[in-house]
Amino acid sequence: MSDPEPTPAEEQVRRLLADARHDEPMPAEVVDRLDRVLAGLDLGRPTPPVDLAARRRRRTARTLLVAASAVVVLAVGFTQLDLGGGGGDAGSAQRSEAGGASAPQSDVDGDSAGDRSQLATGPPVVLSSAGFGTEVRALLAAKQGSASARPIVPSLPPACADLAVGPGERLAVQYDGEPGVLVLRPPSGDRQRVDLYLCGETAVVRSSTVAVG
């Protein structure tokens, strides 16, 4: 019943902690983000819930395999992207697929379909619930390092093609073995948010904010 009296130092620590309390409201951008997530959850309500905890339990057995697969897929994917540009050196950034010549965007008529004509195809990037943040960082780093300015949307599954995911570059992924779309939101300053959607679901399943630049 009787707890030991707090020492003066402990009392001071408590005072310092109380003084460091955060009193400001949730920032507007976080409110907006969570509102969008909620809206997505509402829209997708009839769909079976995504049990993140179950995913977490399942992940242990495959963490190593998934991580290794991710590295291989990333390496293959970005190597493929750079093949047309001459091997991935920094000087190849502006080269098109047409033989490495400097002909940026010459094959695009300027309409929205043009974006699609620039899309690279390939196998989906493998992500796991266990290593999501790290894998996303590695993905963006590899993407920047690839010096390829082209959007990358490898083989979006049909169930994902019509997902309303908002602005951002879309990337087909396998998340814990399930098909999904990773949306790379437009960078805000030195930060870039990345949202994961699973095919057939309208809600964001995972998000991560990554330092860029």
């Binding site: 309390r21 976080v30 969570l34 997530v37 909620l38 959850l41 905890a53 964001v204 998000s207 991560s208």
Partner: peptide, 28 residues
Amino acid sequence: LWAVALRTMGNRDDAADGLQDGLVAAYR
């Protein structure tokens, strides 16, 4: 909830991510 998440996680981005995880979990 934001204040708790922010102080627990230590920065805004991670706090927003954690709060979002919690929001989705609570909803479901």
